[in-house]
Amino acid sequence: MTTRKSFYLVREDMLTDAMEKTLAAKELLDSGKVKKINEAVNIVGLSRSAFYKYKDGIFPFHTMVREKIITLSIILVDRSGSLSQLLSKVAETGANVLTINQTIPLQGRAHMTISIDTSPMKLDLDALMDWLEELDAVKKVEIVGTGS
């Protein structure tokens, strides 16, 4: 099994200044008040490098609660039935597959991304990822994005 990043719920007063400013910059961008990252970081008093360091790792709680679509990156062994087995496992959870992108297999492995609607899932996301990693054909599973 591979190790993956864990997620934590942290009280606002425990965040670093850079994290709080990253959230403020993201809010400016999401609201449309500014169009460019440079503008947002200047307004909140944050460096671009700090913004890029935290932007993909910190989210307001309310946005994570409403997330229903996730994109997974998966390394899959290239053998007959591997993709079918993976998709069957996803279907068993009740999740709905929205997109699949797979590379041409090289050295016996293929990289794929799969976007799924998790709202009808019967189990939590960690359990899904553990379940997928138990498949012989799956070598690695990571979350690469979320959306609603």
Rank of each mutant, 00 (worst) to 15 (best):
L128T: 04
Q102K: 09
L76T: 00
S82H: 00
I104T: 12
D130C: 07
P120G: 02
E92D: 13
T99V: 11
D78K: 03
G108S: 04
P105C: 04
M129S: 04
E92Q: 12
R79E: 15
D117Q: 01
A91H: 07
I116Y: 02
R109P: 08
D78L: 07
I100D: 05
I114L: 04
M112S: 06
T71M: 05
K122G: 13
D78N: 09
I116P: 00
I75P: 04
T103I: 10
K68T: 14
T118M: 14
H111K: 15
S80T: 15
N101F: 15
R79P: 09
N101S: 15
R109C: 11
M112P: 02
E67C: 13
A110L: 03
I116M: 04
S82P: 03
Q107M: 15
T103R: 06
N96H: 11
I75V: 13
T71K: 03
D126T: 12
D126F: 13
V77W: 15
V77T: 15
P120T: 04
A91Y: 09
M129T: 06
D126Q: 11
M112A: 07
T93G: 02
I104L: 13
S115D: 02
I69D: 06
L86R: 00
S119C: 08
E133T: 10
S84T: 12
T71E: 04
I69M: 08
H111I: 14
T93K: 01
V90R: 04
L98S: 08
I104Q: 10
D130Q: 10
W131D: 15
D124N: 09
G108C: 03
L128H: 03
G81N: 05
S115Y: 02
R79V: 12
D124V: 09
A127I: 15
I74D: 00
N101L: 12
T113G: 00
D78C: 05
D78T: 04
S84L: 10
L106V: 10
V90C: 08
D78R: 03
P105L: 05
L106D: 09
D117L: 02
T103L: 07
G94S: 01
S119T: 09
I100T: 06
R66I: 14
S84W: 08
V97D: 06
K89D: 13
Q85P: 10
T118V: 12
L98W: 12
A110E: 06
L87A: 07
S115V: 03
M121T: 03
I114Q: 00
D130W: 07
I100K: 05
T118I: 12
I75S: 07
H111G: 10
L98Y: 12
D126C: 08
L86M: 02
I74A: 01
I74S: 00
I104S: 09
R66Q: 12
T103M: 08
R66W: 13
V77L: 15
A95I: 04
H111L: 14
L86S: 00
R66V: 13
D126V: 11
I114F: 01
D130A: 10
K89G: 09
A91G: 07
L76Y: 01
G108Q: 04
L132G: 02
V90L: 14
A95Q: 02
N96T: 10
S73W: 14
V65T: 12
